[in-house]
């Protein structure tokens, strides 16, 4: 996984080769994003347009910044002191990085539809699924109800319905409908991951971020997960980080290739994999750099 210097300078020097979706279709628009882990910069002026109701893939070698980029989109990095992002991330036209609106514990909720500085509200609308399955230590039912209860008061009947719908859309309902009271920790890895997807969509986000969701799964579980994602595309936007190029080509509408903290190439997947324009992406896609 080493890149020689000429490619590093190429990545640094050349601006992104971009075939972006029309501005009107973008639900999320990242502009000139820099990211720092303490003093170390790991993203350099990234522009990333995310089209509504499409699946956008981020690919690239390990350490290229694709997970970092994903983690800025719902500001999960806020959890860690010393990590910060500069630039713009426009979500429905509003910059969610607006520094002076930094969330404070106990801050009042804005009454408008603006996110304001409320990271919790942002995360309700931009959900996330992680590399390893993260079921909460409670029953399958409660795993899903937990997130829903954060935002609304619902009756038992409504909750039952939400749980069923969410599990169905995550292609898990048939497998677990008889054991909703069992611990989520007892499911297989693939089931756990789909449970996490169900948990994420139960809150009804506009965008779902997935950070290498299939890297810990076997091929069968992976294909079930992919099928679920294709279904979900109707009602929400998906951004997925993946190591699996076939997966990106199979299910994604747009693909962004990242290298050394920069977005090198961004195009519709149909073109991107057939004839990559930059040498770096060509090398990556043909497997020269793994």
């Amino acid at each position: 996984m080493s890149f020689n210097e000429s490619q590093a300078t190429q990545a640094a020097g050349v601006s992104t080769v971009m075939v972006a979706p029309p501005a009107a279709e973008r639900v999320l628009d990242v502009r000139g994003l820099d990211f720092y882990y303490g003093k170390k910069q790991s993203l350099y002026g990234v522009d990333l347009p995310v089209a509504r109701n499409k699946i956008t893939a981020l690919i690239g070698p390990s350490g290229c910044g694709k997970s970092t980029l994903l983690r800025t989109l719902n500001r999960i990095y806020d959890l860690y002191p010393g990590q910060r992002a500069e630039g713009q991330i426009l979500f429905n036209g509003e910059n969610i990085l607006n520094a002076k609106d930094k969330p404070v514990d106990g801050a009042p909720v804005a009454t408008s539809s603006r996110i304001g500085g409320d990271a919790a509200k942002l995360r309700a609308r931009i959900g996330m699924v992680f590399q390893r399955p993260t079921p909460f230590p409670m029953s399958i039912y409660e795993n899903i109800a937990f997130g829903v209860r954060l935002y609304r008061k619902v009756t038992k009947a409504e909750m039952d319905e939400i749980v069923e719908v969410s599990l169905t859309r995550a292609a898990l309902w048939d497998e677990v409908k008889d054991q909703l009271d069992k611990s989520g920790l007892g499911l297989s890895g693939g089931q756990q991951q789909r449970l996490c997807v169900a948990r994420g969509i139960a809150v009804q986000p506009e965008i779902l971020l997935l950070d290498e969701p299939a890297s810990a799964l076997d091929p069968l579980s992976t294909s079930k997960l992919e099928a679920a994602l294709m279904e979900l595309k109707d009602s929400l936007t998906i951004v997925i980080v993946t190591h699996n190029l076939q997966q990106a080509a199979r299910i994604c509408d747009y693909t962004g290739f990242m290298l050394l903290g920069r977005l090198v190439e961004f195009r519709p997947s149909s073109d991107a994999f057939v004839k990559p324009e930059t040498e770096a992406m060509r090398d990556y896609v043909t497997g020269r750099y793994g």
């Binding site: 309700a124 992680f130 909460f136």
Partner: peptide
Amino acid sequence: QSSQLREAGVALGAGKGL
């Protein structure tokens, strides 16, 4: 406890304390 479990909770929009 893994940091991903914490992040998963926060990513749902739950406050850190919760």
